[in-house]
Design a binder for these strands. Structure first.
Length: 549
RNA sequence: GGGCGCGUGGCCAAGCAUGGAUAUGGCAACAGCCUCCUAAGCUGUAGAUCAGGGGUUCAAAUCCCCUCGCGCCCGCCA
């Protein structure tokens, strides 16, 4: 995965000479107030008769390590202080030779990340955007740790919602050129029409024809869906999200692959009045085929996953928490019934609510992502104009808007429901993308205005704030591994904020331009180290680089 | 009713997988800091029965059980 100077492993190996059971998890990096690196030895020493003796031996070994400045034992914790020049070198050497820290090996596994996958019946709203943002960041994270990643959008072009969209166009705007507003209008009028007539018969007939693989109908629906999908892709593009592959659900009906699913599951299928189902242990009957022979959503999803497993080693899907059970069923069918040994994993997120309650497109209470983006852009533009007047840069305002929106929906654990509040979304202070971007802008400021003198670096006098910054920068590979292992891009978001805060403290504490040459030279390198790592982390979470704020 | 998820200062979150040293941040509040590399920043003060109860353990925000509150799911829908 990564190649970097691993101080924790070196320390652990020394400890292992005395206590072989000590594992990587027992070592902690950067617990404020104690050592730079601490080892929880309590569980191994608490019942040991000669604990003091073992501790003494460990301390002696650790103190001989070149990169260790001091070590002590308190409350059965081994606390180790690292010489900052070694941390500095570990970072600088990696960045000088590879341009990054940590350096990464390409992994052989191909990973698919499916996200968004919303029915193309309207523009992207902020609830769905949470899905897109989590999915896109997850894909970038997996890429950073060395996987070959492809992002996927599963386009649901069958089903009632899509048929209603098509029906609305045919009924209300047939001879007009189909545009997004026109289609939306037809869609809304269709639901009104259903209410007024009390019947959805016309759409049901369309669904039936569709399921019977009526190629003329399928291609017509696809045109309409395609227009909506283009709108969604454009919305995604404004916040820096591009999806690699779009797969249309109707293809699995057209190619007969849903039929193949039934064949491959034939041993596990049971019959009920002509319909077919599998019995999932501990759950219930899951129907895969109606008695009229047509397929169901889960059948097509199985076909889709069979397709994905033919291309990828690990398939990840970002879906709303209402799909938890669906996910469990899919895993059971793919791994236990169809006996795939590849990994299927789901990332679930809770929905975004409004202070006034739930979002609903039909009730007109959902907030389009693009309107939040526009508002953010407008507000940051006002701020930029206050600072730079005529020279305020629209492009910067756009980057602020996109980054802020992404960060706002990414920084929390996806399992927590989010209540969208305009005042919070539009806040540029504190734990926000802007404060991270601000630290990057300050880096540009320093590097433009302060230059090094000579080539000598002082490697002795590190102020506390610089030591802390370097140590935090050094933590990056461990955070990446944590985040990648647990599929939690929000870990990187939290880290990026911590790192930028630490940089700002260093920046406020030390006036680099006024330092003696040899210290100034080193601190400029420290700034470049910070720059490299914060940009790396921001790339993952979708915070865009700015030169000036 | 059953299943799953969530509950941490006034508000919003981190930490929980792998139990361990004084529970970490942000917003809001209060008191300070710009003739100085960008104050969208920094420093300090105040604020926590980690929903409640029980259990396991030398040790529980973290693991187990119960209760309460909120959310989601329980279709031959998607």
């Amino acid at each position: 995965m990564f190649l970097f100077t691993n101080f924790l492993e070196t320390i652990r190996k020394e400890i292992n000479v005395e206590i072989p059971e000590v594992a990587p998890e027992d070592l902690i990096l950067g617990q404020a107030g104690h050592g730079d690196i601490s080892a929880r030895l309590i569980r191994y020493l608490i019942n040991s008769k000669n604990a003091a003796e073992i501790a003494e031996k460990i301390l002696k070994r650790i103190k001989t390590l070149e990169f260790v400045s001091n070590a002590s034992m308190t409350n059965n914790y081994l606390n180790v202080w690292i010489r900052p020049e070694h941390v500095f070198r570990a970072l600088k050497e990696s960045i000088d030779s590879t341009g990054m820290f940590p350096d990464v090996f390409q992994e052989p596994e191909r990973v698919s990340v499916e996200h968004t996958s919303t029915n193309p019946t309207g523009p992207l709203h902020i609830g769905r955007a949470r899905n897109s943002i989590i999915g896109d960041s997850l894909a970038r994270l997996k890429k950073r740790v060395g996987y070959r990643v492809t992002t996927q959008y599963y386009v649901n072009d069958s089903g009632k919602q899509m048929m209603s969209l098509y029906f609305g166009y045919e009924k209300f705007h047939k001879n007009e050129k189909p545009t997004i507003p026109l289609l939306l209008d037809g869609y809304i009028r269709t639901y009104k029409y259903f209410e007024e007539t009390g019947s959805e018969k016309e759409v049901e007939e369309l669904m039936e024809r569709y399921e019977r693989n009526d190629s003329d109908l399928i291609s017509k629906v696809r045109v309409v869906a395609g227009i909506m999908l283009e709108g969604i892709s454009a919305d995604l593009a404004t916040i820096g999200i591009k999806i690699d592959e779009y797969t249309w659900e109707s293809e699995f009906i057209a190619t007969g692959e849903t039929g193949m699913v039934m064949e491959r599951l034939s041993e596990d299928l049971q019959e009920d009045n002509g319909a077919r189902f599998v019995d999932i242990p501990g759950l219930r009957k899951i129907y895969l085929q109606r008695k009229n022979g047509t397929s169901l959503y889960i059948t097509r999803d199985i076909a889709y996953h069979i397709y994905k497993f033919s291309q990828y080693d690990h398939c990840m899907v970002v879906v709303g928490e209402d799909h938890r059970e669906h996910g469990r069923i899919m895993k059971y069918i793919m791994n236990d019934l169809l006996e795939y040994t590849k990994t299927l994993s789901f990332v679930y997120y809770a929905y975004v609510n409004l202070e006034t309650g739930k979002m609903s497109t039909r009730k007109g209470t959902s907030i389009p992502m693009i309107s939040v983006y526009e508002k953010l852009k407008e507000k940051s533009m006002e701020e930029l104009q206050r600072r730079y007047g005529e020279n305020a840069d629209v492009n910067t305002a756009e980057k602020i808007a996109a980054s802020s929106f992404r960060y706002h929906l990414l920084k929390f654990n996806p399992t927590k429901p989010v209540t969208f509040r305009w005042e919070d979304a539009l806040d540029f202070n504190g734990d926000t993308a802007v404060s991270i971007m601000y630290s990057m802008a300050r880096v540009t400021g320093i590097l433009n205005k302060v230059s090094s003198e000579g080539a000598t670096l002082n490697m002795v006098n590190f102020p506390e704030t610089e030591k802390e910054l370097l140590l935090l920068a050094y933590m990056y590979p461990y955070r990446l591994m944590d985040a990648a292992r647990s599929d939690k891009p929000e870990i990187i978001a939290n880290y990026a904020f911590m790192l930028s805060t630490s940089f700002t403290k260093f920046y406020e504490d030390v006036k680099i331009s006024e330092q003696p040459p040899e210290i100034k030279n080193r601190q400029l390198e420290t700034v470049k180290i910070f720059k490299t790592i914060i940009e790396d982390a921001c790339e993952i979470i979708g915070i865009m680089k700015v030169e000036k704020l």
